[in-house]
């Protein structure tokens, strides 16, 4: 199996992105030099433990991080650097070029506004010349697209279940027909059945609408099901990247291996007796270990690991990993 040829012009190209949060007693480096490409219509999964910087990366693309956060590098959306945009241009790009489904499904809708009004607001903001009837028709179409009866538009968020709210958020994200959808932990707050439902919905929409999706989650198994390519983050950097089935089946980086092994194999009695977790906690970004930041938790750590700041290196066709054990093919 070989990776598909990469299209020349990526829809999203992140180059050397670094994000440092303002903190008392020095900044907190949450993302430390990440580059990635996403072609139109492609899906990329971004995986990692909480605190690895994946949500920060997702937020940085539309410049949604708190004021005072230092963001360097480039975020090229259709060739235009989001980080260098003037405020007016940025507001125009938000939601029309790229939109985001936020992590907190239950709290991302304004509780005192009807859900229809919240979708209308986005459409009217970006397409002010659209008539009232056309806007209403689009709202109905969007809600039905995500499997919610159009007459629920006049409901307040609290009348909807968690899964319904998450689907409304997806409908809302599609309101202005963006080409890129950033889904930040879109299924985390939901129960398993609803998770599967939302994932199927995202996969279907991606295919039907030709969306590019950046799918951020800690759950490697969902990524393998939804995304063709995945990138694994650790301590603010991508440590492994490649086609998802290959990465999942034969991880090149010890961290990916541990992450993949941490998910239970349903029905496997051996796993129940010996669940394999990853010992220790993710490192505090303020006090990263020297060299490879994973070495204190790494089962395969080499003597040179605390000293070598290892970067991504090729690890087979369309794959890369940041580990000294990976020999360039």
């Amino acid at each position: 199996m070989s990776a598909a040829p990469r299209p020349a012009a990526p829809l999203l190209a992140v180059r050397g992105l670094a994000v440092t949060y303002a903190g008392s007693g020095g900044g907190v480096p949450a993302v430390r030099g990440v580059s990635l490409d996403l072609a139109p219509g492609e899906t990329l999964g971004l995986a990692g433990e909480s605190g690895c910087g994946k949500s920060t990366l997702a937020g940085a693309i539309l410049r949604l991080l708190p004021r005072g956060t230092a963001v360097t590098g480039e975020v090229l959306l259709d060739g235009e650097d989001v980080l260098a945009m003037r405020p007016g241009r940025l507001r125009a790009v938000r939601w029309t070029e790229a939109s985001i489904v936020l992590q907190g499904a239950l709290h991302s809708l304004n509780p005192v506004q009807r859900i229809g009004a919240q979708i209308v607001e986005a459409i009217e903001l970006h397409e002010p010349r659209l008539g009232r009837g056309a806007v209403r028709a689009r709202v109905a179409e969007l809600l039905e697209l995500v499997g919610i009866p159009a007459d629920r538009a006049s409901d307040y968020p609290h009348r909807l279940s968690g899964g319904q709210r998450q689907r409304v958020l997806i409908a809302l994200a599609l309101a202005c027909r963006p080409r890129l959808l950033i889904a930040d932990e879109p299924t985390t707050a939901l129960d398993v059945m609803v998770q599967a439902q939302v994932l199927r919905l995202l996969a279907r929409l991606q295919e039907e609408l030709g969306l590019a999706v950046l799918f951020v989650t800690h759950d490697l198994s969902t990524l393998a099901a939804v995304c063709r390519r995945i990138a694994v983050m650790y301590a603010g950097r991508i440590v492994e990247e490649g086609p998802s089935d290959e990465v999942f089946r034969a991880p090149a980086h010890p961290y990916t291996r541990a992450l993949a092994a941490a998910f239970p194999v349903i029905g496997d009695p051996a796993f129940r007796r010996h669940p394999s977790g990853l010992p220790g906690d993710p490192p505090d970004p303020r006090e990263l270990p020297s060299g490879c930041p994973f070495h204190p938790r790494c089962p395969l750590a080499q003597p040179e690991c605390p000293d070598v700041d290892v970067r991504l290196r090729p690890a087979g066709a369309g794959r890369a990993a940041a580990c000294v054990l990976v020999e360039p093919a």
Binding site: L64, R91, S99, S108, L109, E121, L125, L172
Partner: peptide, 10 residues
């Protein structure tokens, strides 16, 4: 979160 979303909408 809904304020972040409102900002993200543009």
């Amino acid at each position: 979160d809904y304020l972040l979303l409102a900002r993200a909408k543009g």
